[in-house]
């Protein structure tokens, strides 16, 4: 992911420009309205909108509440999905730093400071002087550390609280409230909802209980997704049957090779091509020739970033999967 230095410079320049624009329009709530010449003088109507939305209380996954007096202007996002949502809402000017997994949209690649999402360095984060930190996974105990430093934390656990497409939409709504861009969030959701509807209409008549069996592979040790995850909800929406079922209650269970073979999936979706797994290598796996998907050449790769991030591109993933699973219904 190394970029030529020129591109980095261009990116940095863009980011600085974006910042300047953001400073002008920090109270801006109208999206299309261009910021006035006086930076700290929002028009009365926009001011009113700000008053109506803030202060705002956002529930957190650990049961606590995040209270924001106004829209944050120095956000550190430790969630690539949240970063994508922020960009989609046009609130990227409020971002101070993103995590090192963030690579979409292109602008997210241009941040000079990147924080490790798995082992976040509390000092590095505090040094950025953020007025909001977005956390999607508290495996490292970062939420408590930030609480101790009185840094506001938006904590929505990606495993516990994001388990369906509507949960993803809920995240977009929340992010709209946090950034003071509820109107943009509504607009974004209307567009996503329309596209979701097209898919839902397209699978009308398909019987969910006899739908195609799908195996969604996360890595070559047969970790997969269950109905408990939002990826499982994509397949549910498509009326396909995910062979891991409810996964024994685990959102991301591991299957045994023999269980995959015995489930005889009609379609295999590979989200692990970046680990070197290919359609050919799956076909060559011993014993897999007994699987319908292998016999009928119905093994497909999918961009794991699109399908595994609970952000706006989840509908892209849904559309791609729809075409792979029902080539005749969707073109």
């Amino acid at each position: 992911m190394k970029m030529p230095r020129v591109m980095l410079l261009v990116g940095a320049a863009t980011a600085i420009l974006a910042f300047a624009t953001a400073a002008c329009g920090s109270g801006d709530n109208g999206g299309s309205a261009s910021p006035g010449p006086f930076t700290d003088d929002p028009t009365p109507i926009q001011g009113l909108a700000t008053v109506a939305e803030f202060p705002t209380d956002i529930p957190r996954s650990d049961g606590k509440t995040l209270t924001l007096a106004g829209p944050p202007t120095r956000i550190v996002s430790l969630s690539p999905a949240a970063t994508e949502i922020i960009y989609a809402l046009g609130a990227e000017a409020a971002l101070a730093a993103v995590d090192n997994q963030a690579d979409f949209p292109d602008g997210a690649m241009s941040f000079s400071t990147k924080v490790d999402a798995y082992e976040p360095n509390i000092e590095a984060i505090a040094g950025l002087d953020p007025d909001l930190v977005i956390v999607a996974n508290n495996g490292s105990g970062i939420v408590e550390k930030l609480d101790q430093l009185n840094i506001p934390v938006f904590y929505q656990d990606i495993d516990k609280d994001v388990r369906s497409i509507s949960d993803v939409f809920g995240q977009i709504t929340l992010m709209g409230r946090v950034t003071g861009r509820s109107a943009q969030a509504t607009q974004l959701l209307t567009g996503l909802g329309d596209r979701l509807k097209v898919i839902q209409d397209g699978v009308q008549g398909a019987n969910a209980s006899t739908g195609p069996r799908v195996y969604h592979e996360l890595d070559q040790t047969f970790f997969t997704i269950s109905d408990e995850s939002f990826i499982g909800d994509l397949y549910r929406t498509l009326r396909a049957r995910n062979i891991a079922g409810s996964g024994g209650g685990s959102a991301y269970p591991q299957m045994t090779q023999e269980a995959v073979i015995a489930s005889n999936p009609a379609i295999i979706i590979l989200a692990d091509e970046e680990f070197g797994v290919t359609v050919e290598s799956v076909k060559a796996r011993p014993g897999w020739s007994a699987i319908e998907a292998v016999q009928n050449d119905r093994i497909f790769g999918i961009d794991p970033d699109i399908v595994s991030r609970p952000g706006p591109r989840i509908i892209d993933a849904l559309e791609q999967l729809a075409k792979l699973i029902y080539p005749t219904r969707f073109r």
């Binding site: 011993p286 020739s289 007994a290």
Partner: peptide, 8 residues
């Protein structure tokens, strides 16, 4: 057959 002979 695949499970017993090729996997297990």
């Amino acid at each position: 057959d695949a499970i017993v002979w090729q996997v297990r």
